[in-house]
């Protein structure tokens, strides 16, 4: 099936099988390996990407469903310098093994794009589909709240 999909601002024409998942297209087709696969059933959130503004698990999304849509991966959120959220993750040590980090940052970004001043509760809710076994989430939540501050200042 031929689809047109915008990934990180660039338009791609892709020929995908009906069973090709978005995660496969991104990782294997486009080499965007920041997208991680952890559970293959949309439970861990490691494969989270942003599709037209919403955080979506790319392991439970089929590639052909993305025809005409715009997808953002972690590779697409920083240009010359790190995104303020990424910097906040560094400053709060919100990363240990790093495997959940891309999905975490994208879930957080989708939240902040829609709700620039979330409460702590709203941050926790936005991250509830992203599992992390290393950090206990607390530094991540701090980083997202701080990231919101930084974004509203910039």
């Amino acid at each position: 099936m031929k689809i047109s999909i915008t990934v990180n601002g660039r338009l791609h024409e892709a020929d995908v099988a009906p069973t090709t998942r978005l995660v496969d297209l991104l990782r294997n087709g486009l080499g965007l390996t920041s997208v991680k696969e952890g559970c293959s059933e949309g439970e861990c959130g490691a494969c989270t990407v942003i599709v037209d503004g919403k955080a979506v698990t790319s392991c439970t999304t089929l590639a052909f469903q993305m025809d005409g849509k715009s997808v953002t991966t972690l590779e697409g959120i920083a240009e010359e310098t790190l995104h303020p959220l990424q910097q906040a993750f560094i400053d709060h040590d919100a990363v240990q093994c790093g495997f959940c980090t891309p999905g975490m940052i994208l879930s957080a970004k989708a939240l902040l794009d829609a709700n620039p001043h979330p409460t702590r509760d709203e941050v926790c809710r936005a991250l509830e589909g992203n599992l992390c076994r290393c950090t206990g989430y607390l530094p991540i939540v701090e980083a997202v709240l701080d990231g919101a501050e930084r974004l509203s200042r910039s």
């Binding site: 390996t33 590779e75 993750f89 040590d93 990363v95 980090t101 940052i105």
Partner: peptide, 23 residues
């Protein structure tokens, strides 16, 4: 001191290459 971990920039920018990411 709270020194930042050595690989954190790679990890927040999705550039950490785990085994499954090598091609």
């Amino acid at each position: 001191r709270d020194i930042a971990r050595n690989d954190i920039v790679q990890k927040v920018s999705g550039q950490m290459r785990y085994l499954a990411d090598l091609r």
